[in-house]
Design a protein around this nucleic acid. Sequence first.
DNA 1: TGGATTTATGCAATTTATTGCATATTTGAT
DNA 2: ATCAAATATGCAATAAATTGCATAAATCCA
Lengths: 179, 179
Amino acid sequence: MALSHAIMTALLEDDMSGYELAKAFDISLGLFWRASHQQIYQELHKLADRGWLQCETVAQAGKPDKIVYALTQAGRDAMAEWVLGNSRVQEGKDDLYVKLYNLSEANAAHLAVEIGQRREQMMQRLYLYEKIRRRHYADPDALPVRRKGVYLALLAGIRQGEHFLAWCDEAQAMLGDIG
Amino acid sequence: MALSHAIMTALLEDDMSGYELAKAFDISLGLFWRASHQQIYQELHKLADRGWLQCETVAQAGKPDKIVYALTQAGRDAMAEWVLGNSRVQEGKDDLYVKLYNLSEANAAHLAVEIGQRREQMMQRLYLYEKIRRRHYADPDALPVRRKGVYLALLAGIRQGEHFLAWCDEAQAMLGDIG
DNA sequence: TGGATTTATGCAATTTATTGCATATTTGAT
DNA sequence: ATCAAATATGCAATAAATTGCATAAATCCA
């Protein structure tokens, strides 16, 4: 299980509540890992039970209380060990490509629309990630070690996104000739 | 659930047994969907129960019998309808990127090795996909409609792979300066 | 004839992920 | 006052995926 590791990674620098984590997963780490808030809350309980996280209820002005989680030393040790193990790729699964195998005159127009929507979503994401990159990773070689890793991950996401946009254009051009 | 649709897509042109499907998922469709043979066999039962597939035991010379599955008309109809619905992206989940967020002097060398392994795997895949492309999709505009869709999916996979190789090189260069 | 390998299919337990609720606090608008 | 929306946390049922077996026919090699 690696959702736990994704969560602990998000907690490396900042302590966070489940709610904050859920939002963090939409942005920074979201390119590489998705998780619902239900999953996150459940995992947080498990990690706290295992002693890798500790939690504390924090009162807030103008908002309900929150439960803030922080990595314990045991948690940090577990992470350090995990990084040295072998990674597992969980290949992305995307209906869109499977649908393309079913291309016909009857659905070409629909698929062109779907691709257009995906393109739009990716544009918005890329805009966000590019902003982060320009703001915090403008000079990658000057970054401290850990941040260099974050930079590389970000770079992979951005490149992937850019390639996807170009592909969308090609695909739509080709689909346009059919529908 | 869309494993069912991936399976039925694989059966669009050729009837296949579970064993053959499992192998087909490693190649052609494998860029976009992964499934274990256990999952496939189970899904085949469900689809047959639902009337979307029909099966037939076929004796083979020099091999055990196999159970070959074929799309029924109901199955084809269900597929045609499904394509017109909204797609769901299941974002890829990859430990490697999460690990990069944990980069340190202690693990930079290990991560460089992991990236090298991934690069190698992707090279082999790309070699296969490029071969398919050159052999069967050399002139995309001349393809029949359905094959154009397959071409577009293949193209997406190849582009993604090529970008990944380039990223690996960059990442290894950066990691080399650390470890 | 015994043993490894490939082909071929499957069950069962467990872990992960999704879906659909349920609840409660606080702000701000009507 | 009430109602919507954002914040915040959670349970339970189901679906999907993974992991670890188990079986069996046929080939090939020693």
